[in-house]
Design a protein around this nucleic acid. Sequence first.
DNA 1: ATAGAACTTGACGCTGCGTCAAGGTCAAGA
DNA 2: TCTTGACCTTGACGCAGCGTCAAGTTCTAT
Lengths: 252, 252
Amino acid sequence: MDWSIQDVARLSGATSRTLRHYGDLGLLPPSRIGSNGYRFYDEVSLVRLQRILMLRALGLGLPAIGDVLAQQRGEGEALQHHLDWLRQEQQRLARQIRSVENTIDTLNGEEQLMAENMFDGFDHTQYREEVEQRWGADAYRRSDDWWRSMSPAEKAAWKQSQQALGADWQAAAARGVDPAGDEAQGLAKRQFEWLRGIPGTHGGEGAGPTREYFVGLAEMYVADERFAANYGGVAGAEFVRDAMVIFAEQDL
Amino acid sequence: MDWSIQDVARLSGATSRTLRHYGDLGLLPPSRIGSNGYRFYDEVSLVRLQRILMLRALGLGLPAIGDVLAQQRGEGEALQHHLDWLRQEQQRLARQIRSVENTIDTLNGEEQLMAENMFDGFDHTQYREEVEQRWGADAYRRSDDWWRSMSPAEKAAWKQSQQALGADWQAAAARGVDPAGDEAQGLAKRQFEWLRGIPGTHGGEGAGPTREYFVGLAEMYVADERFAANYGGVAGAEFVRDAMVIFAEQDL
DNA sequence: ATAGAACTTGACGCTGCGTCAAGGTCAAGA
DNA sequence: TCTTGACCTTGACGCAGCGTCAAGTTCTAT
């Protein structure tokens, strides 16, 4: 009892081309091949095809389906793995949607994004050239994309956490604490974690900034008075830099 | 003042291969080509590249980006269109995630999906063969996927709406109303709308069932006592069928 | 016998480049 | 001058999953 390729196509809803494709991949070999080269399928093939189509409908790739059918991987395991990937995709889409929405809003003039603060509480476009020169346009663009993808509330929260950190730095500097001491090193660690949240800081996928980047940034805080002002002037920035450099040497 | 392809690559974060690709597509032609064939880019090219990369980061396709840059389509319009598509994708992903989750749950035996009711409140797997014979396995599988993708709450709501409709049919049949009258035709319309919600009912993307399918289903209600029971026996099912056939002839 | 339906094996197309392959160009050093 | 090495070129395959011709063979019905 077997069926031709068209019969199977009609029964299953797949096209004959798809069936031949699966045959080529070894996913669904015909149960029999006539002397004329025609493909024929039996009940076992049909059941197998049902599973293939179901797994495909769930979004699994053909190689993954092959693994499952070959018992090389448990179905539950494969689906769980697939589910993780689906969730990541959804998050990515959600971020992109927010990013596009914000860009549209900006185009509509509803929000003057360029007047917002980002790097250390300044208009981050002020630093566009510096950032590009030092770390490449790619780094700048990644940060920019990241910033655009946030909601106003998220932006506000971010700025606040940044300002709190700056205030703590200033207070510590004013009390003259030891840059190598626990308190200053704790602040340096906070600074590191804060930077970790920004993409494009040369550490690749949440790894946080590299040692080089971190030290370079510390020097920039001193060299540039606009940054320095955020830490209570040059003296404060020097304190911040010293603590950051020590932290980088010890922990990065 | 121009830059070599590698210079631009470093500045922009794109690879030289990508730049050549954009050149081939006409998205970003070099501002100058040396006698040796080398590509060179000027400031204008760089600005253009920035826009390309930004739009790409937002997920636009290269042809769409080309349209925007060529002023053939407004940026806001293109982004809005893109946003719609992104949202659809997200919904699709959400459905697929639910579907995979439910399948995993089923595999884990936490839910005996096969014991659930679907078609007209019956275990829909009871009807698998009928459905496949009449409308093909594809139709069955699409309905099945759809049903699997729903949460328990959604399933409950669906079943309730279905049962309410069945009860109204029974009541109307019991009162002996005219199958061609407004009341029965209103019920037939509800039946149509209800079916529209189920994929795989031969209408293609929310178009609702075809006339043929609708009439065939009406006959099935009478022919099969399991369906008939849902409308108060054969007599009730005949009333339903008559009303549905009239509706199909007049409105489909 | 002959038309028409069904079947076969190729092979290109689509998206956005990554990744060799094979070879020319150019500035700097021995 | 010759060589090395960095940088440049065009060309073409690869990936995912088939859709879609194209050209030829076979089956089925008249």
